[in-house]
Nucleic acid binder design. Structure first.
Lengths: 152, 152
DNA sequence: CACGTTTAGTGGTATATGCCACTAATTAAA
DNA sequence: TTTAATTAGTGGCATATACCACTAAACGTG
């Protein structure tokens, strides 16, 4: 017994989620490491890729991420030349995002590694279990906890 | 249709996990806000509390967190006087951690709010579903992806 | 059309987390 | 016991993410 030195007592849904996220994040990051991308970056490039030059707000909404957080996360990818932004000509408030050619190459490279990670995980936990886990996580992501306001 | 502007396509286990973690984290953070603690901090205080003056390494192992990350996360809590560290007299490499009296007070305050969040979540998703989700997450956390090395 | 409001992003600040290099303390080996 | 290897943390640097205050652009109304 070297690992679990303390009782996990993971009764907290949020704590359990973060813990699992750290674990899984490390795994995906490890597998993706040869590409030089983190799993979060690969995921972001992918999200941009599947969108039609998505606006930042649209990406943030899809990822359930704060808009400013997205802006910050995007910076290293822009700096490294994988992504570029441009103002929407019809509404100059809107900034759209697209992959550069190098970004697309890098994404393809990372996707190969992603498949490896994804496959290895599903080998370990089982395809069904992984699928139902994702479904449960999507449920969480889709929840609507409107804090019961006084409706004044 | 204002929310999901892009197709979620959450096929990636890791992406789904992070997305759910952002969502749930925001919810717990919102509910805990009156205490001035983030959900991560409440969880960390709790983990310290249930341990017997745990060593940093033990806490990090329990939370599946990098040791240095734990050190960083601990800093604001030490600065705010909720936590203190001290060297183990039998092995001065080891730093043990404990709550200060104020830390205990703050934890109790935060736990009340935590119960609210936890309850509200379980009201929304259902107790069984929450429980099985936690079980699945604990499974993930307990996985052992030893990258098949060449075993030289 | 001028003014107030809403919408989309940016920049600053703070926490969360990880990796790496380095130090201190222990332990194991020669 | 003197030295090599292991263990526990620290500090620096980088990304991930959030909230807030602020700017700019578009909208809606009188």
């Amino acid at each position: 017994m070297s690992k679990d030195a303390l009782p996990g007592l993971t009764l907290c849904n949020n704590a359990a989620l973060r813990r699992a996220a750290r674990k899984l994040g490390q795994f995906y990051d490890d597998v993706l490491a040869p590409s030089g991308l983190k799993a979060t970056q690969q995921g972001l490039l992918y999200q941009i890729h599947i969108g039609e030059e998505p606006a930042m707000g649209a990406i943030a909404a899809s990822l359930i991420m704060d808009l400013s957080a997205l802006g910050h996360t995007l910076k290293p990818l822009i700096r490294d030349g994988y992504v570029e932004t441009f103002a929407d000509p019809d509404d100059r408030r809107i900034r759209r995002v697209r992959l550069t050619p190098q970004g697309l190459v890098k994404l393809n490279e990372a996707m190969k590694l992603w498949h490896v990670a994804q496959q290895r995980l599903e080998d370990v936990v089982g395809k069904d279990k992984a699928e139902s886990l994702r479904a449960a996580l999507d449920d969480i992501a889709a929840l609507d906890f409107d804090l019961p306001p006084a409706t004044p």
